[in-house]
Design a protein around this nucleic acid. Sequence first.
DNA 1: ACTTGACTTAAAGTTCACTTTAACTGTTAC
DNA 2: GTAACAGTTAAAGTGAACTTTAAGTCAAGT
Lengths: 157, 157
Amino acid sequence: MLYSIGEMAKLLSLPASTLRYYDQEGLLPGLTRSPGGTRMFTETDYKALMVIDCLKQSGLSIKEIKAFMELAAGGDETIGDRLALFRGRKAALEAQIEELQETLALLSYKCWYYETAQAAGTEDAVQNLPPDQVPEAHRAAMARLEVRRLAEEEAGK
Amino acid sequence: MLYSIGEMAKLLSLPASTLRYYDQEGLLPGLTRSPGGTRMFTETDYKALMVIDCLKQSGLSIKEIKAFMELAAGGDETIGDRLALFRGRKAALEAQIEELQETLALLSYKCWYYETAQAAGTEDAVQNLPPDQVPEAHRAAMARLEVRRLAEEEAGK
DNA sequence: ACTTGACTTAAAGTTCACTTTAACTGTTAC
DNA sequence: GTAACAGTTAAAGTGAACTTTAAGTCAAGT
């Protein structure tokens, strides 16, 4: 089964111009052309594009993805390099997700904060709430807003 | 406690130029200046900058964050709007994290793939592996690489 | 007073990942 | 065959988020 650039663009829900750009940047070394010069995408190209998206989401730049694609074109000799790359990306993404979980906790705290403020009709009510009335679940997020971090406890300035 | 732009930059581990840029873009409406014109950052500004980072991580642009900061400057009347914004950001980030979990699953599959290929000395060995020898945990990720999605099952072309 | 380092501004420059344009050519349906 | 549509290229343009530059001012220590 072969796909035109328009068909492939629909399958991936992205503009055809992006596929041309990726091709131009060397992200699709295996891509073939019809006698007339039209790009013909195969299922293998589809898989490559899914992996490209995956690497992109993991934080790689287009140039870095190109380097990986060249590795992949290098065959079995580069299996070790590619394994190392995926292990690195996996670790990076795990770290990234952890960071986003902390961000999420802060957003949850802010939702609680504004829900409480809304119920009271004013923000002051939440600001003046004794700390022990803040739900346990939000304490850590709340603490992240405090300065401290990095400053090694200077004596009262 | 007051901080110079350099001190605040260190606390946040970002360049002072970024803080000037944020100020210029209107992200710090409460920021005051010394008689000589030097920016003086308070703990409130620190908190605001933590929230800015949080909103940025949740996918908001600088312009959108500015709009929020203006809302916040509007006082108690805008509590409802701000609550709605944080709820929206929370939902968006939750969706984003789910997506990254899927990406992570694909990376895990790729790690397994290359570990197996490395053990066999060639990629072909993994390619030719009967599907039931692929660990259950990786089946879904593997399936995501297949075309199908969106195509409504055309009769054998 | 003077040096040094950190601050100030406006404006221009950078990087990234596309996106658009213009002029043209290939492909498909009638 | 021809219209209309989908494809092609090289090159220029876009928008976001900074970053750098240049020229100058402020603040702290000696």
